[in-house]
Design a protein around this nucleic acid. Structure first.
Length: 415
DNA sequence: TCTCGAGTTGTGTCT
DNA sequence: CAGACACAACTCGAG
């Protein structure tokens, strides 16, 4: 019996290394690739820069509404027998997927999901560490090394895989078309040049380009890169990894190829190391309850932060009066990406360094403005920088003046 | 149970 | 200009 199948794109916006999509194509006569514009995730407060990365493949059926409302209707309308998606560990995603799975069951729809957003199955890492997430990178590394290397990525489907599959792409084109930003209620007049256009093709192109620089890749040490160079001193592949336009495993194995037979840097500072940091915070976010809060978060130091709306607004709107801090926040607001160490500088400034404001407030601003804003990484890094968890050397404080001078003697970045 | 070394990416001063 | 060191609100986890 051939299936009529919906593949549900959420993150994992790619064809390469997409095992759930491959399962969708197995014994399939009709495939509906669906993206749901969930008002919980995509609303008008979401920063415009984030939207610009979300120009979606034209074959998608873009459906507006809550997934719990949308899917039962689609199951019936298209007489669907199978639903596939990529496993996602965020708390909202887990409860949403549980609800949709229940609804699928009620409609006689088989559900298949695959782990492919992270290098490893996060739940396996926690299991391997006796049911608790590692709280230090060292520990994380030893757990990971006991698991062996991450799975090899699988190739994108070929036309052969599609032989017996029909894609009713013209059906309901109007109703399920790709909405414009205008249509979604955004004022697009403020949009500036798009520095990091979205999509899988662009992601793979950028990856290729960086992997050609094998000497640079082999020598990469994150702390040696510059937070305030005029052109990014790192790969800026993070937005693509966030949305899954680039598979972390594809990235990992491409690096392994470049490293092969050459002397190269190692975690935590290497590019492999950066992917392991992502894995580290994903694991923490799964194993630690209330990970994006201070309250009821068992690893987070409880701090009596100040409430100061004016200071918070000044920080957010780049008018603290500290040129280095304001320049970073200006870049964040206009371009949607800032260097990791620039994030350190402004996060330290907002929290333990200067303004003494709760990291949760900074987290919200980053979530709104960053192209690569990732629930787990954002929460984890804010706890790190505010010395609330993972990092505890409180006296390592970034100077809002001196730190930037180290890599920008003339203040070109600020100018 | 306790101790102790280590912790991706600080700053300012002294030698 | 590089390296050592003080700073003196810390915590994790290996042994």
């Amino acid at each position: 019996m051939a299936h009529t199948c919906i593949h549900w794109f959420r993150k994992g916006l790619r064809l390469h290394d997409n095992p759930a999509l491959m399962s969708a194509l197995k014994d399939c006569k009709e495939l509906y690739p669906v993206f749901v514009l969930d008002p919980f995730l995509y609303n008008n407060t979401t920063g415009l820069n984030r939207w610009s990365l979300k120009k979606l493949n034209s074959r998608l059926f873009v459906v507006r509404g809550k997934p719990e409302d949308v899917f039962p209707k689609l199951f019936e309308k298209w007489t669907v027998t199978k639903l596939t998606y990529e496993y996602d560990t965020e708390p909202y995603s887990l409860s949403r997927d549980q609800n949709v799975t229940q609804l699928a069951k009620e409609n006689g729809v088989e559900v298949i999901y695959k782990v492919s957003h992270t290098l490893f199955d996060i739940n396996r890492i926690i299991e391997e560490n006796n049911g608790k997430p590692p709280l230090t990178y060292n520990r994380m590394q030893s757990i990971v090394s006991s698991l062996g290397p991450p799975k090899k990525p699988i190739p994108a489907p070929t036309t052969d895989d599609m032989n017996d599959v029909s894609c009713p792409s013209s059906k309901d084109e109007e109703k399920y078309g790709i909405p414009t930003l205008d249509e979604l209620g955004h004022d697009i007049s403020s949009l500036t040049e798009e520095l990091f256009p979205g999509g899988e093709e662009e992601a793979l192109r950028r990856l290729d380009e960086h992997m050609k620089r094998s000497q640079w890749v082999c020598n990469f040490e994150k702390p040696q890169t510059s937070p305030n160079s005029l052109m990014p001193s790192t790969t800026v592949l993070s937005p693509y990894v966030t949305f899954g336009c680039l598979s972390a495993r594809t990235f990992w194995w491409r690096l392994t190829e470049v490293y092969r037979g050459k002397k190269h840097s190692a975690p935590p500072v290497s590019l492999h190391g950066q992917l392991l940091w992502r894995e580290f915070f994903y694991t923490a976010s799964v194993g630690i309850p209330n990970f994006n809060q201070m309250k009821d978060n068992p690893v987070c130091t409880q701090v009596d932060w100040d409430t100061n709306p004016e200071f918070l607004a000044a920080w957010r709107e780049a008018r603290t009066g500290f040129p280095f801090i304001d320049a970073i926040m200006t870049q964040l607001r206009s371009e949607g990406w800032i260097h990791h160490l620039a994030r350190h500088a402004v996060a330290c400034f907002l929290t333990r360094g200067d303004l003494w404001i709760n990291w949760v407030e900074g987290q919200k601003v980053f979530e709104d403005l960053l192209l690569d804003g990732d629930w787990a990484l954002n929460a984890g890094n804010w706890q790190w920088l505010s010395a609330s968890a993972f990092f505890h050397q409180f006296f390592r404080v970034y100077s809002p003046v001196a730190f930037g001078k180290k890599t920008d003697k003339n203040g070109d970045y600020i100018k």
